[in-house]
Design a protein around this nucleic acid. Structure first.
Length: 515
RNA sequence: GGCGGCGUAGCUCAGUUGGUCAGAGCACGCGGCUCAUAUCCGCGCUGUCGCAGGUUCGAGUCCUGCCGCCGCCA
């Protein structure tokens, strides 16, 4: 089958540093991407993240530090890229909206949309909030002339601008959502989207006059204007990967973009549901492209019960957690603790609890005791063919849960296997049998089975905990690259294979480390 | 103003279409084992499932009202 997936995180607006909330999104998308890579093969999956670098707010932030916008965004964008890399986020593309390739693609899109006749020019006068980068109708303003979001004065601005006809596509979009239950998920967000599409839409203003703001992509048909930042940013999902293979051939790139969007799984936060459920589909249609495959909407990550945000000052640097607790720990925590789609709470105390209970006591200790026994009773050698009676459909159950975005449930399934395996040790008592040489064969069989379970665990864990998975494969004397792929298949350990002595993968944390 | 969600053991939460669903994990207590990171295994513990009514043979599970949080739209 020619099934493909194009998985994207939001294109992060880089006027601030990455925090645990944005990391959560990148991590969820990464688990999903890693899962599909194993399922479909590397060549059939692309995974993209990136930064959104145009617009007034960025220009002002740069100005405040006395920097040229591009110099400023070079720096900010690198922070995101490095943070994701530090967390093991395995993107294939990290797209910057200031990338010349992206800009070229956006201009092509503008040309096509213009030719299709869905752009028009008109004068517009309204009350504008610089921070929101949008106009407000008078009745939405709070306290007379204040922006309802930022509580600061709006400016009256009159200017000609280009608009995109989106009301024209509203019925079509609504039908699509109504007829495709999985298109927006979880379902609560699908219902909200349908609600938003119940009333007529105001056409989207997609330009800014250069006289007011020149930090943007120039319209190919009017050099006095640049695109509005939102309109530009959506296309980061497609621009660079579409042009990557055929830098010179716009028609080929356009066909590639059509393929990519049709298999796109967007991961976004609920704050940008409207832009993605209501605006993005008509924008695509106006450009003559198919719709994306799915929108996967997640909730907020609170910190100690409070909304995590730059303004409340409780943002945390996600990478510092990896440094303090070790690789994969933040990944494990947010995937295991939070229900995708719902708001969740993040706290260091919970993280330590999870770490000790699940990682140190269950997973780490299990690996340790199995490898120790293999060493002590079999000199680190596999001496029997692992039993065929081992759990076989776990693979399927875990996979289904990941596809449904039930990351928490998938991990619970995996931990059930650890519990069963621990139980198996208690029931069979290999450490007792080993005291009598007559039981050697039985002990060797039990250990072969246990090592095989460890091997399967290493495979199941890879999407969630890539470093841990890697280490487990190494401890098992296997090659993380080549052997990981067959982890869950029947190709298990063979007699004669040697494994290594245990190391403490997750040392218990007795006191809170200074993070 | 309109629409929607949430409120279940000390803590964090699961709970499909109404009938062994009153649950899981953590924490706590007792017992077992000693291969293992004082880890593992077994048993136990606490709840009027926000409040008040209603439908039903039977309701966390449906309906109404109320209280307390929180979203979205306008």
């Amino acid at each position: 089958m020619s099934e493909r997936r194009h998985i994207t995180t939001a294109i992060f607006y880089c006027n601030g540093t990455p925090h645990v909330g944005s990391a959560y999104e990148a991590l969820a998308a990464d688990v999903f991407a890693r899962y599909w890579r194993r399922r479909l093969g590397r060549g059939r999956v692309t995974f993209l993240s990136g930064t959104d670098e145009h617009g007034d707010k960025i220009r002002r932030a740069a100005l405040a530090e006395d920097l040229a916008p591009k110099v400023y965004t070079d720096r900010m964008s690198a922070l995101f890229r490095e943070a994701w890399q530090g967390l093991g986020v395995s993107f294939d593309y990290f797209v910057r909206t200031t990338d010349p390739i992206h800009e070229r693609f956006v201009q092509e899109m503008l040309r096509r949309t213009h030719e299709n006749g869905d752009l028009y020019f008109r004068d517009y006068e309204g009350l504008y909030c610089v921070d929101c980068e949008r106009f407000y109708p008078e009745k939405e303003l709070s306290g007379g002339q204040l922006c309802p979001v930022h509580n600061r004065p709006v400016e009256r601005i009159s200017e000609g601008n280009y608009f995109l006809r989106i009301e024209k596509y509203r019925e079509q979009v609504r039908d699509h959502i109504a007829k495709n239950p999985g298109f927006i998920r979880p379902e609560r967000y699908r219902n909200e989207a349908l609600n938003m599409l119940a009333e007529p839409l105001t056409d989207l203003c997609i330009s800014r006059p250069k006289s007011r703001l020149d930090w943007g992509i120039e319209l190919p048909f009017d050099s006095n204007y640049v695109t509005y930042v939102w309109y530009d940013a959506f296309w980061a999902y497609l621009s660079v990967p579409a042009l990557a293979e055929n830098p010179g051939d716009m028609d080929a790139a356009w066909r590639r973009a059509a393929e990519l969007i049709a298999c796109s799984e967007h991961f976004i936060g609920k704050d940008i549901l409207k832009t993605h459920a209501v605006y993005w589909p008509p924008i695509l249609m106006a450009a003559g492209l198919p719709l994306f495959r799915r929108l996967n909407v997640h909730g907020w990550l609170n910190f100690g019960g409070q909304r995590m945000s730059k303004s409340s000052g409780n943002v945390r640097d996600p990478v510092s957690y990896e440094r303090a607790f070790g690789p994969d720990v933040l990944r494990y925590f947010v995937m295991r603790e939070l229900v995708y789609g719902l708001d969740g709470d993040f706290s260091e105390e919970r993280l330590v609890q999870r770490y000790n209970a699940d990682l140190a006591n269950d997973l780490g200790n299990f690996a340790s005791r199995v490898l120790a026994m293999a060493q002590r009773y079999c000199q680190g050698e596999v001496r029997a063919v692992p039993g065929a009676d081992l759990e076989t459909n776990l693979q399927e159950r875990v996979g289904r849960k990941i596809e449904e975005l039930d990351f928490k449930g998938a991990l619970e399934e995996i931990w059930l296997l650890i519990a069963e395996a621990n139980n198996y040790i208690v029931e069979t008592e290999p450490f007792k049998l080993a005291k009598d040489p007559a039981n050697a064969a039985r002990v060797e069989q039990i250990l072969a089975n246990l090592l095989e379970i460890l091997r399967m665990l290493a495979g199941f864990l890879e999407p969630f905990m890539p470093v841990t998975s890697w280490r487990l494969f190494e401890l098992l004397g296997l090659n993380p690259e080549s052997d990981a792929a067959k982890a869950a298949s029947g190709e298990g350990l063979k007699p004669g294979h040697r494994v290594k002595p245990p190391i403490a993968l997750f040392p218990r944390i007795d006191r809170k480390p200074a993070a």
